[in-house]
Design a protein around this nucleic acid. Sequence first.
DNA 1: TTTCGTGCAAATATTTTGCACAGAA
DNA 2: TTCTGTGCAAAATATTTGCACGAAA
Lengths: 162, 162
Amino acid sequence: MTGSGDSQAAARAIDATEVLVSRGLRVTAQRITVLDAMIAERDDTTAQALHERLRPAHPQLGMATVYRTLNALADAGVLDRLHHEGTSTCYRYCAPGHHHHLTCRSCHAVVELRDCDLATWAQHVAAAHGFSAPQHAVELSGICADCRARGVEDASAHAHTH
Amino acid sequence: MTGSGDSQAAARAIDATEVLVSRGLRVTAQRITVLDAMIAERDDTTAQALHERLRPAHPQLGMATVYRTLNALADAGVLDRLHHEGTSTCYRYCAPGHHHHLTCRSCHAVVELRDCDLATWAQHVAAAHGFSAPQHAVELSGICADCRARGVEDASAHAHTH
DNA sequence: TTTCGTGCAAATATTTTGCACAGAA
DNA sequence: TTCTGTGCAAAATATTTGCACGAAA
């Protein structure tokens, strides 16, 4: 599954080369490979997983390159870096601007939530404690409709959430 | 050592032994040492940092024990596990129950926010996308009144927040 | 041509584990 | 006594880096 299965979505998808150029990053075959994969796969992935997945079709893609590319893209703001419980650092392709994510705890499907209406709330709470310049980070998670239909169990129902 | 300045706060602090007993954890000198340190030090710490800090006064406290103790306490819900950018896993002493934190980006002062009123919001957003069993994690940050008075700069004003 | 990216393997960094012994219940 | 916790060092993971070479600008 070199990505050709997603032809419909990929057809009008963001062009990796353009993204690289627009960020002032040098365009290389490896970076296109990695970025394409991240764009096609909205869900978050670790460097290791991505490398394993890409390796068959790109035998000479080194693990170090995957790490370096993901870091470069994250530094450039193209990817999100996520630090989950348990797993190593995950990366996710991410639209620009302020927004939040709703993630399925079972299959890791991601929904981007635009129109965040929490800024006012954050402002209010912060001000109540004498804080200024509030920022807020929110991660919503749940079980998506598909997984629910499949009767998936919720492994982290007991998590201590903040 | 460095923490003795907090004597006032520490004086009427939570009793480590009681906490351990109440969670059904066996009471040992090492666990008391670690938990006491975490209670006294509200800011988050890594296992490594804690070990280094405690080692001088407790020469025979092994690093593995620090890791094991922090994990046991986190599993028991006594500590929070935090996954920051850059650093390894941090731990923080944390009141029980669902709540959020408001952290000063300058001095790392932490305010616990009780009475979280976001559950309804989360429920609503999740349902709108077909998700069930919503959980939400929120980290609020800002510049606290003290730091503001001191004219502190906001180092992370450009952060990409979600 | 100059500069930067890449693969490989070795180096680091971080966290976990096996084992024999000590200490809590 | 019995069972669990602990220290130590080695192991397992995860990520970064040095170096010579190849590719982009």
